[in-house]
Every structure is written in structure tokens, then in C-alpha cells.
Design a protein around this nucleic acid. Structure first.
Length: 808
RNA sequence: GGGCCUGUAGUCUAGUGGUUAUGACGCUGCCCUCACACGGCAGAGGUCCCCGGUUCGAAUCCGGGCGGGCCCACCA
């Protein structure tokens, strides 16, 4: 008899054959015609200018399993690939490549450079997804349902601008001038969510102030001496006896000579520094709060470009760093510097992208109201299903800590431009009507804009308008991804209404406070609805030592390396076998990937073996007890897998399936049924033989279908080779009710125990497994298996009773 | 400083009040048995982080500690 599968094992090279076949006629497009329910996956668009890394590969592989499983359970799966092309990473790549600061260029030129970067980054990253066997709806760019989309396409940017126009008209967006987090490197305002804290080296400068009334010196420690020019007050703790006599007196700022009050205030701590501190405007957020509370007039000394202005007096024009040095030198000269204490634990707020220290600078920016919606957000957070459930807390914690509205304007280049003009004369704001992508740096406000009357300012009648060069925060763009993929306010009409909420948002835990939070917020503000049904939060793939992978550490792993070494299938299998990404990080180990890959060889060979025994055309009327038993085992696995898959858990079923395939099925069932399947001596009836062949094939089919979402390439290859059709287009297996209720006196353990005893006895005697066993005593329970047991082990005299005994 | 989570053999993982703790990778030894040597069999390897408590009984529940991770807040 010949096997139908060629080769002793699944080879990495087989993968490209399957992929090539798929590519010719892509089988996973979104089906616009059927009425099947839509299952939508709001995939996280990766940045295009960096290669896909191994962690992303893992999460997309898992998302692909969600998609493939849902397809097999009757859903029309919306699984689009999006590419993020907006934002600072692109701009920074351009700055590095062309060695310029975009802020020094005219807008058109800056945008042109970003476009060049984008052209070159092309689709290199997408290729890894393809090779991983990800079943995105499409690999072609377009605006149809399920098409590959880019966040900088005119269509996407149109929707981004439209959501702004809607929220503006609803009064949810407002403009305000206030101190903001400002990154001098990126030259833009930042939201709290974009700020990191770092411990940096710095120095505490102990500076002498004079008390005007008494002439005594007080020493104040500070890390920001250059801000002394903006000093608003000197404070000490009300319980601090050392300074109590200074209450209400006046301190004179060294060098600048500015006079400020000395007061007791609880925010000064006795044990910190010298116990007495100066409060300057905009050293940090606490200062801002203090100034507001004390009704002090803030003095702004730092300009947008990070240099000191006229309020800094003799420091004017210098960068912050130079200003600090110059001021400290001046203090030294005049003997006002007591000492300098170095510290490497100076905690500084930094821009999460450029790592520049954040300054607090007052600017006019646009805000989305969010503080007043905190309780609504919490309600929404409770309405969504989280996988794992405890991940919900990450979102709730963030909502609790929101304290200011969401600043959405940025002074950058490669992002969606804010379609908002102002009358040059009276400052009236003008917002265009919805309908297309506006490029306000090239055009004025169109006819039909609100605030406009006959092409002139509706307020003062003037006809000059200007655009402030501002773009949206990247999260303002990306928070509409579920709206975009579900065609909110787009064609086909009614699609969004019918298919919202989006079925699942899969994303990393570290961007819960940004991507997830802003999406839930913004889409609720727009539609009044909860945008996601499920939220799946994944942890990370870390390097072998458990450290987060990052470019700066140089421990990044490109999935291409994995694909070249092992192929997609061992990697996919490793992804589910290694652990549950919902619960923990997992370590990237090539050794373990290679190890898990062996299961593919096992699967291949089991299939190869079974392919020698074609299945009968119909199910035999009567099955043997052994067959019924293995089919019951399959039922258990199928039930478990379906339940767990529905809850985004592929890890636990995969473990069980592998164990079943390897142990229960291959080692025990197959070994016992071999003789009956071959039936070379005619010791079994035709019906018994047919039952064996039927069961072998039925179990194989079930295994292949159960594994289809996990390892799509090998299951496809085996299924099409043996069955002549695509397994991925089939229904996920159900339980076989015909055997489900059958009561069998033995269980898996009984069978395995007996087999092991026979094999052990033969091995100990050093005889072949074929050699006859004189007699054996098996448990009474195994009686229904008599014929299979006797034949498989070649037992002459099979008796029943206790204990289990084998005589060779 | 606050919050959330986590700690099972060299590595990873299952388990969750009940007899000798699951499975895998790796390791050691024997075996090329006609689907598979990327195989089979056997074996070594664990104070289930530590200390208390609840319980007839705890790796599993509670409290405390120690270690790790993430998030938030904050410093003169």
C-alpha cells in the first residue's frame, strides 16, 4: 500500500507552495454578498518604517487564529490589514535620513521628505505577515470593506477630519491657552499619555536667598536654577520651626533681585532638601497647580524653541542648558552658590518618543472634553468583555487618573491637518463642511464653512483667513480605526449601523491608556455607543533573558529570521504552546520553537500512515468498541476546543490536542487498530476493517480541523492532498452524538495501562513486539477490546482478572 | 509613595482545597519495531518563593514578608 503524502516529514519549503496557491486566488476576502454575521477584528496598524518584530508577529498570528476559527463557525470575518503612516516616527526617520530639522523647513518640503521615507519603507513588513499565513481580507490598498488601509490615505484622513468637524460642531472640542507639556525636540504639545519619566543625572544647587526684612540668608536647593527668574513664592512647611519666623517676610531672588513672599504651605516637606523651597512657574505640573491655587501670575521664561525669553533677563536667548550654566557661574562669582550636590536620581518627565525633557509652556491648543465623561467611560469599560478579565482594571485605573482634557493639536507635519482657519482680523474660527480631505496649508476655508458668510468672515466681514500649522495627535487618528473599518458614514450605507459594535479589539497592554481609551472615548462621543464587544489584551514577547525588546538594547528579533530558520508553522505552534499571552509575557526561545515544531512531523506522519487506508464511502453501521472509545475522546477535545477558542484561548486546547494526537491517538489507538486496518490475514470481518478505516480517517479529519486555525499551512496541505478540498472553508467540527451516549466499561487509562504492560514485558525480554505473548491477564473492563488487543499484541491466551499480568 | 498583576524541576507550562503535582523542551541510558530516529521506551531532575494562619487536609484560601513585571503619582 502506498502513502499519499510524499516525504517523511513536513518541510519548511512546503509553506511557500501553499502560500503560492493561496495567492493566486486569495481565499480570505470579505464576502460582501452573504448574510452570515460579520465578525470584525480591529487590527492594530503597525508602523511601516520599522520592520515587524517578533512580538507583533506573535499577536498577529493569534489574531489570525481568531479570524480562522470564526470563519469556521459561520462568520463573515472582517480582518483588514491597516498600516500606520502618520506621526513622529516617520518624521524622525526623515530627519535622520536627510539630516535636517523638519521645523526649519517649509511645510510642503517637510511633508515631501516624509513621503520619501514612506515610499522606501514600502511593503517589506507586510511580507512577513504574508509568510506567516495571516488571513487578512486583502493585501491590496483600497477603500472597500476589508481592504488594506493606510492612516494617511485621503479617505482615512477625510474621516479623521470629519470626526473633528462633528465634535467641534457638537461643542466637545474647544480651544484654550494654558500651560502644556511641550517637547522642545519635537516642537509640539504632548498629552499626559505621551510622557515617560526617567531618572537622569542632575545636580541640586544650593542657592542663597536674602530675607529683605532681617537680612539673613536662607538656602534653597533646586535642580532648575535657571527658573529662578520666574519665582512666585518661597514656601516652607507649617510645622517647620526653623523657618516659622519668616512667615510673611520677603525673599530676594539671587542675581535677579526679584522679591517674593515667604509663606508656610503644606506642599513643602520638612525633610526634603533644605526644607524651604521656591516655587517657579512651570517647572512641573505641581507648579502649575500651585500658581493656580495661590492666584499667582505665572511668568513664562521659556520659548517654544527651548530658549529663554526676555523674562529671563541676562539669560535671554540662551538654551535652557546654557542658561543654567551661565546662571550658576554668576552665582559662584557672587558667592551665592553654597554647594552643588550631584544626583543620578533626578526624575524628569521626558517625551516618550524623542526622550527630550518636557517643558511646560503656555500655548493655544485644541482640547477634547474628557474630564466630565469619566463616569461614562467607566460604565463603558464595564460593558466590554475583557480577555483576560483582569485587564479591564488597566483601563479603569487610567480613567481614574485622567485629570485634564485631551489636548489633540500638535505642531508637527506628517499627520492629519486640523481643518480650522481663523479670520485674520477678528480671530473668528472657521470650520469646513464634511466631505473631503482638506489641505489647509494649501487652501483657504471652502464655501459652506461654518463661521463664513459669502466667502467672508461671518463676524467682521473680513476676507483674510489664516491657518495655524497644527495637526492632530496620532491617537486622534488611530482612535477611529473601528469606525473606519466598519465604514462609519461611508459606503455601503448602513453597514456600520448593522455591524457595530466591532467584535474585538486586540491590542497590547501598554497602550490601553492611549489606543483603547481614546477609541472608546472618541467613538462614544461620536456615536453614543460602546464601540467594542470584546477587548483582547496581550502581554509581550521578551528576549531570552526576560527583557523587553527594543531597538536601543539591540535585542530585537526580526520574524524573517524565524521564518527562514524554522518556517511559519513551528512559530505559530510555538506561539500557542508557549503560554497564554493574555496572562504573561513570554520569552523568545529558538530552542523551544524548534522543539514544538516536532509536533508537525508527528501530525504529518500520522496523516501519512492513515492515508494508506482510504475511508469507506459511508459510515459502517457498526463500530468496534475501540473505535467508539477514540471517537468519544475526540468529542471531549472538540467540545473543549470550541469553548476555549470562543474565549480567545488557543493555548489550552492546543496543549490537549497535541497530547491527544501524540499519546492517545498515535501511540495507543493507532497501534491497536493497525492489524484490523491492514487485515492481511483476514482475521477481521470486512465490516470491522471498514470501521477501523472509517475511524482512523474521521479522527484525522477532526484533528486537522481543530488545528486549522493554529497551523493553517500544514493542515491545508494534508487536507487538500488527502481530501481534495480546502479545510479552511469547512465547518468547525461538532461532537459526534452517535457515540457520545454510548457507555463503555473502560477508559483511556485502562487501555494505556494494558498496552504499556505488554510493551514493557516484551522489551524486558528483549523480544520483538511482533513475537507472540503466551498469555496475558487484562482487566475485565477491557473485554470489549479482546479481538483488537489479542491481534495487536499477538496474544495467544487473553484472560481477564487481576492483577494485570503478561507472560512472554 | 499608590494601584494592578505575578513567583510550580535547567527552561517553559497545566492545575487549583484531598491519595505518589500535568505536560513539553532540554538532559542521561537503551532500541534504526514495516507512519514517524524531528521516532520509541526507560530514567534522573521539584522545600509548588519564604513565614505564619484557616482546615481533618493547602502548591491551591487568608495575612505578612521577599523577588519580578506593568501602570500611575511625585521630589527641593
Amino acid at each position: 500500500m502506498k502513502t499519499k503524502l510524499q516525504g517523511k516529514r513536513w518541510e519548511r519549503e512546503f509553506e511557500s507552495g501553499v502560500l503560492k496557491k493561496w495567492k493566486r486566488k486569495w481565499p480570505y476576502g470579505f464576502d460582501r454578498k452573504t448574510k452570515r454575521p460579520v465578525y470584525s477584528i480591529d487590527t492594530p496598524p503597525p508602523y511601516v518604517n520599522t520592520p515587524v518584530h517578533i512580538g507583533q508577529a506573535t499577536t498577529y498570528v493569534l489574531m489570525d487564529m481568531f479570524a480562522r476559527f470564526r470563519r469556521m463557525t459561520g462568520n463573515n470575518v472582517l480582518f483588514p490589514l491597516g498600516l500606520d503612516r502618520n506621526g513622529l516616527p516617520i518624521e524622525m526617520a526623515a530627519e535622520n535620513k536627510f539630516n535636517v530639522k523638519l521645523t526649519s523647513l517649509p511645510r510642503t518640503k517637510a511633508i515631501g521628505m516624509c513621503k520619501k521615507i514612506l515610499e522606501e519603507s514600502s511593503l517589506a513588513s507586510v511580507d512577513s505577515f504574508f509568510r506567516l499565513g495571516i488571513s487578512f481580507n486583502s493585501w491590496k490598498k483600497g477603500t472597500g470593506i476589508g481592504d488594506l488601509y493606510e492612516t494617511d490615505s485621503p479617505d482615512y484622513r477625510t474621516l479623521t477630519q470629519e470626526t473633528f468637524i462633528d465634535l467641534w460642531n457638537k461643542g466637545i472640542i474647544y480651544e484654550d491657552e494654558r500651560a502644556n507639556n511641550f517637547c522642545p525636540g519635537c516642537q509640539t504639545t504632548l498629552a499626559d499619555a505621551e510622557i515617560d519619566y526617567e531618572n537622569r543625572k542632575g545636580s541640586y544647587y544650593h542657592i542663597k536667598f536674602k530675607v529683605k526684612e532681617t537680612g539673613e540668608d536662607i538656602v534653597i536647593a533646586t535642580t532648575r536654577p535657571e527658573l529662578v527668574c520666574t519665582i512666585g513664592m518661597v514656601i516652607y512647611n507649617p510645622g517647620d520651626k526653623r523657618y516659622r519666623h519668616l512667615e510673611g517676610k520677603t525673599a530676594i531672588a539671587p542675581v535677579f533681585g526679584k522679591e517674593v513672599r515667604i509663606k508656610a504651605h503644606p506642599s513643602a516637606e520638612i525633610g526634603k532638601g533644605t526644607g524651604i523651597m521656591m516655587v517657579c512657574s512651570f517647572g512641573d505640573l505641581a507648579d502649575i497647580r500651585f500658581f493656580r491655587d495661590m492666584k499667582l501670575e505665572p511668568v513664562i521664561s521659556i520659548e517654544k524653541d527651548g530658549t529663554m525669553n526676555k523674562n529671563a533677563g541676562f539669560l535671554q536667548g540662551l538654551t535652557i542648558k546654557d542658561a543654567r550654566e551661565k546662571y550658576v557661574k554668576e552665582l559662584e562669582k557672587t558667592g551665592l552658590l553654597v554647594k552643588t550636590v550631584p544626583t543620578d536620581k533626578h526624575r524628569v518627565p521626558v517625551c516618550e518618543r524623542s526622550k527630550d525633557a518636557i517643558e511646560f509652556i503656555s500655548m493655544k491648543e485644541l482640547y477634547v472634553k474628557q474630564v466630565e465623561f469619566k463616569s461614562d467611560m467607566k460604565k463603558l469599560a464595564r460593558k466590554m468583555n475583557f480577555f483576560a478579565p483582569r485587564s479591564r482594571q488597566i483601563l479603569i485605573d487610567w480613567i481614574d487618573s485622567v485629570s485634564i482634557d485631551w489636548p489633540i493639536s500638535r505642531r508637527r507635519f506628517y499627520a492629519t491637518e486640523i481643518p480650522l482657519w481663523y479670520c485674520r482680523k477678528c480671530g473668528q474660527a472657521v470650520v469646513p463642511p464634511k466631505g473631503r480631505y482638506y489641505k489647509p496649508w494649501l487652501e483657504g476655508p471652502p464655501a459652506g464653512s461654518t463661521g463664513l458668510k459669502n466667502g467672508k468672515c461671518g463676524k467682521c466681514g473680513s476676507s483674510g483667513f489664516r491657518w495655524v500649522e497644527r495637526v492632530f495627535d496620532t491617537w486622534f487618528d488611530s482612535s477611529i480605526s473601528p469606525l473606519y473599518i466598519l465604514k462609519y458614514t461611508r459606503k455601503p450605507e448602513g453597514f456600520f449601523e448593522k455591524h457595530q459594535p466591532c467584535s474585538v479589539r486586540p491590542q497590547g497592554k501598554e497602550i490601553v491608556r492611549t489606543w483603547l481609551y481614546y477609541t472608546v472615548l472618541k467613538d462614544w462621543l461620536l456615536t453614543g455607543r460602546r464601540i467594542f464587544k470584546d477587548v483582547w489584551i496581550n502581554y509581550h514577547v521578551v528576549d531570552e533573558k526576560g527583557k523587553k525588546m527594543s531597538k536601543s538594547k539591540g535585542n530585537m528579533i526580526d520574524p524573517k529570521e524565524v521564518l527562514d530558520r524554522f518556517g511559519a508553522e513551528p512559530f505559530r505552534l510555538w506561539t500557542v504552546m508557549e503560554g497564554n499571552l493574555e496572562k504573561t509575557d513570554f520569552r523568545c526561545s529558538f530552542e523551544r520553537m524548534e522543539g514544538t515544531g516536532k509536533t508537525l512531523t508527528k501530525l504529518w506522519n500520522v496523516a501519512r500512515f492513515i492515508s494508506m487506508f482510504p475511508a469507506p464511502k459511508t459510515r459502517p453501521k457498526k463500530l468496534c468498541a475501540l473505535d467508539e472509545w477514540i471517537l468519544q475522546e475526540v468529542n471531549g477535545i472538540v467540545k473543549h476546543a470550541r469553548e476555549r477558542y470562543e474565549n480567545y484561548d488557543f493555548h489550552n486546547p492546543a496543549t490537549r490536542i497535541r497530547n491527544f494526537l501524540w499519546e492517545t491517538f498515535a501511540s495507543h489507538y493507532v497501534e491497536l487498530v493497525k492489524q484490523r486496518a491492514y487485515n492481511e490475514n483476514g482475521e477481521f470481518s470486512r465490516e470491522e476493517q471498514a470501521a477501523a478505516r472509517y475511524t482512523l480517517n474521521t479522527v484525522l479529519d477532526a484533528i486537522l480541523l481543530l488545528l486549522s486555525p493554529i497551523v493553517p499551512l500544514i493542515t491545508y496541505r494534508i487536507y487538500t492532498d488527502l481530501r481534495g478540498k480546502d479545510n479552511h472553508g469547512l465547518e468547525f467540527p461538532g461532537t459526534d452524538e452517535r457515540v457520545a451516549k454510548k457507555r463503555l466499561p473502560f477508559n483511556a487509562k485502562d487501555v494505556m495501562e494494558f498496552n504499556s504492560a505488554v510493551w514493557k514485558a516484551k522489551r524486558e525480554k528483549g523480544i520483538s513486539l511482533r513475537t507472540e505473548v503466551k498469555s496475558a491477564t487484562a482487566s475485565e473492563k477491557l473485554k470489549p477490546l479482546e479481538k483488537d488487543l489479542a491481534s495487536a499484541h499477538n496474544i495467544r491466551n487473553l484472560k481477564y482478572g487481576k492483577p494485570l499480568k503478561v507472560d512472554v
